[in-house]
Design a protein around this nucleic acid. Structure first.
Lengths: 264, 264
DNA sequence: AACGATTTGTTCGTATGTATC
DNA sequence: TGATACATACGAACAAATCGT
């Protein structure tokens, strides 16, 4: 009873949702109705609903009402599948493609100066020039991820002209660098982080502009046989529709049905 | 200009923060001052601040003021380090231990019925009994993660009594199962997800109760030589202070300084 | 196409509570 | 104890989106 009224209202509604009294997709009582039911002002009711919204339990639609959030079945991306069999890089960042059709935008190529973080990852001087290859990725025509790969510009002078070309590189960049410069990718490190989306990402992924939905940001740094970083790839995915898997050793095929939830 | 006033105010403050005019840790103008500066009502100013709070840019402290959020230097946990060298499981889920002292709570042991999701992962009938071993983990005495491992209860009847014992199992459960039952862990799959914390997690990690900070939930399913799942370990970490790495193949040692940020 | 009814979104004003210094 | 600053709560008005007539 000591907690503020808007939290008590939210708690009551949360209980209804989690007990299944209110089912996913179902409309809640309107603000006016809740006002009567809890004997609170409209603004207090709205505070309660905003809390539930931040918790991802409900969503509001202007002119329509407030609805219990539907779980969306997530894309599952495999970061590593059985590494012992080698580094066929092309397979990475792949969707568990079940009837889902990925598509890719053209590559947007830029020459930029590496910021401190990128320079450190690539092991090049701060401010060095890098080739940036940016691509938007869709699944079933809905935005799925934003990916940017960075290469030291020095690679071009060494003979890898095609990484500064907007054309798709058939066979993948890894294979190309191996053929052109003899650089073999012998390993990589992924760094997985989560943060709130920036405005570009909010627009591309169609995310709510209030930071309710976070994004994964995955940095993949790839190394050649001399231990030099040849590439940094940054990929961004919304957290509300993406999971990742890492498979090590002998792992049976995934029959994964759903993801379910866990409570209290 | 068509956007609502509270967003314009938030945008103005955001620009000041990202340009560095307002530095991390620094106090913003008070609500009353902002009210004057933007010629808006106090509630509108508060809406703007709430937006920035959801975006993780500022935090408010009652009686003190509103402050630009300080970046906290994250714990980096390695999910896989050079898998080719074998499955020395004990090393997994380790912190990049730099002057940081991890500590563990006692193990809380329970016998539960597997829900549908857990049963599917373990490949046992829905509702089967499982041994649950739960542990709280701290780094430098601050809450770091909550971990629960589930084992089919049938393992106990087969001779692995000690997994139903609250004592720590010296050498690790993987080794114990190998010795006791000849079950060798030949691989595992990690599934990485992000969701809002439940009330237990909010309390343990000391998170804001408004869902502003999400948590990672990592499911590790381990398999033995017959392709049977012997264990599911669920670990929860707050996203605001944790990163993960996956290292594959030959990767130089990490000198990683910071994580930096990326914008627009 | 136009209109009205319904529902959420934005903005203001005001009062009081609670935390901090 | 008082002053300051954020938190909660109420009431009110109008805007904007949606839907059915």
């Amino acid at each position: 009873m000591g907690s503020p009224m808007y939290r008590q209202i939210a708690e009551g509604l949360r209980a209804e949702i989690e007990s299944g009294t209110l089912k996913p997709g179902q409309q809640l009582l309107t603000e006016a109705e809740l006002q009567g039911r809890y004997n609170a002002s409209r603004n207090t009711v709205r505070d309660a609903i905003r809390l539930l919204m931040n918790l991802g339990l409900v969503e509001t639609r202007p002119g329509q009402g407030t609805f219990v959030t539907k779980k969306i079945d997530p894309f599952v991306t495999t970061l590593v599948a059985d590494p012992r069999t080698g580094d066929s890089e092309t397979y990475n960042f792949q969707v568990s493609a079940q009837k889902r059709k990925p598509s890719l935008s053209d590559i947007q190529l830029e020459i930029q100066k590496a910021d401190a973080q990128l320079a450190a990852r690539l092991g090049i001087p701060d401010g060095s020039q890098v080739i940036s290859r940016h691509q938007r990725r869709y699944i079933d025509d809905t935005p799925w991820s934003l990916q940017t790969s960075f290469y030291p510009r020095s690679l071009v002078a060494q003979g890898a002209e095609r990484i500064a070309d907007t054309d798709d590189i058939e066979g993948g960049v890894v294979k190309y660098l191996s053929q052109a410069l003899g650089l073999q990718q012998v390993g990589y490190r992924d760094l997985i982080t989560v943060r709130t989306p920036n405005s570009t990402e909010v627009a591309f992924f169609n995310l709510p502009p209030d930071g309710r939905v976070a994004v994964y940001e995955i940095f993949r740094t790839a190394y050649d046989q001399s231990g030099t970083a040849t590439r940094v790839t940054v990929t961004v995915f919304p957290t509300d529709r993406n999971h990742f898997t890492v498979e090590i050793g002998a792992v049976p095929d995934d029959l994964s049905p759903d993801t379910g939830d866990s409570s209290s």
